[in-house]
Design a protein around this nucleic acid. Structure first.
Length: 436
RNA sequence: CGGGGCGUGGCGCAGCCUGGUAGCGCGCCUGUUUUGGGUACAGGAGGUCGUGGGUUCGAUUCCCGCCGCCCCGACCA
């Protein structure tokens, strides 16, 4: 993308409504634009990041055996009356009527719908297990939307739903998602910590929140350093095998949010290993048994001919929230520092003297080699502005090309995260950017 | 939902208390200048002062209603 032609409305000053870093930076970097309280339009730079996050989420869901579908945003109220949640959900549910006066709603989640869809398919225990997910916009009419895309009313969520023949089988599905989540967040460049969560009225202990550490996090978390030292990508499990040992590695260490904090267990953690920090919830998984399958009338026939009510779980990742959360976890005074995996562009090519034949030629060669994964700042503006905006937008690499170096075919490559600069040939610069 | 605050060119703000036909910085346009960290100078364009009503000769300013947005708290991907 040539910046001279791009729709990238960066701001030098911060809009007054933005309080936290990610919101400020997303507005300044031209990623989003607010259209109503808690509702945002995604502009090209923001959309690219959102799509990259979604794609990683998708790949890891697929790897764990879940299958992608796409359910609608608008649902019929009758579906929700079957589970009894139409009345329970309250003001957070956006309700409206269609032209025939039918009561409709904008889906805040999809347990009822997915169960209803699955019901028509599943006849036999042989049709289990299945795990269906989609990545779709949700609407929850929050009392107080805030923090930009981190607590919007409309948000993009990945929600998966598992159907199993027994509790034991359902726990296997749960572990698959548990490990898939660890891999997902690690690939996004985040350190996510699974924490036991309150299961609410369902009971049992199978609910975990996945929380990333960031100074501006909403909740206080307590975690053992041993847990932070684990690498989710180090051992890739066979998702069909018994996953218990893999999950146990992660659940044996202390980790809790304020609500679940156990002072006695905490003091048992060696003092040097106690990490107390702020966290942002980016994922939440539950096992909830037959709550929805029973309510929606989902049964399959067992091997003995008797009906079985499938055991279910649901698994959510806040995709649009993650974009904000990543920035919270990775920024500095100058702007965003994107992890390589989700950066809108891998590199920015800064032509310090657009119009100079030598600079133009070298920039053109690099741009041709990097293609769609690079932005080329070919604008006729001061170098200082290019530096400032490239730092703000957070591209992992900045290829700085000015008259001095270009005369010798040299490119100055700056790593955004570290500030380290190297002088490289065209070929070496291309290799460095591609190799990251 | 309880408490607090704010709506004035694209963005950040002043003016309002003490009514008299709107101003500053950034950004934008033109020209000159500058060319390795948001350059400098000059000249421009751009505003139903959120909205409806009231008071007044006259309302951005005073009064009332409404709408929108933000912040703090209790709840949530």
């Amino acid at each position: 993308m040539r910046l001279s032609r791009a729709f990238l409305p960066t701001l030098k000053e911060t809009p007054a409504e933005a309080q936290i870093a990610s919101h400020r930076l997303m507005l300044r970097a031209g990623m989003v634009r607010q259209t109503s309280a808690g509702i945002y339009a995604w502009l090209p730079a923001g959309l690219r990041v959102l799509q990259k996050v979604a794609q990683i989420v998708r790949e890891e869901q697929d790897r764990a055996g879940a299958q992608e579908i796409l359910m609608p945003t608008v649902q019929n109220a009758d579906l929700w009356r079957q589970s009894g949640r139409y009345e329970d959900y309250g003001e957070e549910m956006l309700r409206f009527k269609d032209r025939h006066q039918r009561e409709m709603l904008f889906g805040p989640t999809n347990e009822e719908m997915v169960t209803d869809i699955f019901k028509d398919f599943a006849k036999s225990y042989r049709d289990l297990p299945r795990n269906l997910y989609h990545i779709q916009w949700k609407f929850r009419d929050e009392r107080r939307p805030r923090f930009g895309v981190m607590r919007g009313r409309e948000f993009l969520m990945k929600d998966a739903y598992s159907f199993d023949v027994s509790q034991e089988a359902a726990q296997h599905s749960y572990r698959q998602m548990f490990l898939a989540y660890l891999r997902t967040f690690a690939r996004l460049g985040l350190k996510a910590i699974p924490m036991r969560a309150d299961t609410g009225p369902i009971g049992g202990n199978l609910s975990h929140e996945f929380i990333i550490l960031a100074e501006t996090g909403e909740s206080q978390v307590f975690v053992s350093q041993d847990l932070l030292d684990l690498d989710p990508l180090a051992d890739t499990p066979d998702f069909a095998s018994d996953l218990t040992p893999h999950v146990d590695r992660w659940t044996q260490h202390y980790a809790a949010t304020e609500e679940m904090h156990d002072e006695a267990a905490w003091t048992a953690v060696p003092e040097a290993k106690r990490v107390s920090a702020r966290g942002i919830e980016v994922g939440h998984i539950f096992y909830f048994g037959t709550k929805y399958s029973a309510a929606m009338g989902l049964t399959v026939q067992g091997a003995d001919g008797k009906p079985i009510i499938p055991e279910m779980g649901s698994y959510g990742i806040g995709v649009s929230r993650l974009v904000g959360a990543i920035i919270e976890a990775s920024h500095d005074e100058a702007g965003i520092i994107w992890p390589d995996a989700v950066a809108p562009f891998a590199a920015a090519i800064l032509n310090l003297k657009a119009g100079d034949a030598t600079c133009d030629a070298l920039c053109g060669q690099l741009y041709a080699a990097l293609g769609a994964d690079a932005v080329y700042d070919d604008r006729d503006v001061r170098p200082g502005q290019k530096f400032a905006e490239a730092d703000l937008s957070g591209y992992p690499w900045q290829a700085i090309i000015g008259p001095r170096g270009a005369a010798n075919g040299r490119i100055e490559l700056k790593r955004r995260a570290t500030g380290v600069r190297e002088e490289l040939s065209l070929e070496d610069a291309i290799a460095r950017i591609r190799g990251a």
